[in-house]
Deep mutational scan, measured.
Amino acid sequence: MQIFVKGLTGKTTTLEVEPSDTIENVKAKIQDKTGLPPDQQRLIFAGKQLEDGRTLSDYNIQKESTLHIVWR
């Protein structure tokens, strides 16, 4: 499925993911596209910070959802 990651600059990155992907895995995909290391990424969805060990489905993140990224 496709999801979007929007940064503070307003730039949006598209990712191809599975609902079973962990947040850690998603951060690795973001690094592949942007070069930003996972330890500098904070992902937010529906006002919650996403924890590395959880999956996208744990947070009810579905296709075409938009996550927000904040740099540490």
Rank of each mutant, 00 (worst) to 15 (best):
T13R: 06
S65L: 03
I61A: 01
K63D: 14
E51M: 11
G53H: 14
I30E: 00
S20F: 12
D58M: 04
K11H: 15
T12W: 10
E18R: 14
D32T: 12
S57P: 02
A46E: 15
E16F: 13
V17L: 05
G53Y: 09
A46Y: 08
I61L: 04
G35I: 02
F45M: 04
G47F: 04
G10T: 08
T22F: 08
K27G: 01
E64M: 11
P38E: 05
R72F: 14
N25I: 13
D32C: 08
E24W: 15
G47Y: 04
S20M: 10
I30P: 00
R72N: 14
Q2T: 15
T55G: 02
L36S: 04
V17Q: 01
L15Y: 08
H68Y: 14
G47V: 02
Y59T: 01
L15P: 00
S65I: 04
L67F: 03
K27W: 05
Q49D: 14
L36Y: 11
S20C: 06
G47P: 01
K29P: 00
I23T: 04
F45N: 02
K29I: 06
P38H: 10
D39Q: 10
I30R: 00
N60F: 08
N25W: 10
F45Q: 02
F45Y: 12
Q31P: 02
Q2V: 14
L36A: 06
I44R: 06
T55Y: 05
L43D: 00
D32W: 12
K29N: 03
Q62G: 12
P38S: 13
I69S: 03
D21S: 08
G35N: 05
T22C: 03
P37V: 07
D32E: 14
E16Y: 13
Y59M: 03
Q41E: 02
I69W: 05
A46R: 12
T55K: 10
K63A: 15
K27T: 02
Q2G: 04
Q41T: 15
T34L: 14
T14K: 09
I69E: 03
G47R: 04
K33M: 13
E51H: 08
D39C: 09
F4I: 06
T12G: 06
I30S: 01
T12Y: 11
K6R: 13
Q31T: 10
M1A: 02
V26Y: 00
L56M: 05
T22V: 05
E16G: 05
G47C: 06
T13S: 07
L36Q: 06
T13D: 08
T66C: 05
G53C: 06
D21C: 05
P38W: 13
D52G: 07
T22E: 03
I61Y: 01
P19D: 06
L36P: 03
Q31V: 04
L67W: 01
T9F: 15
K27F: 03
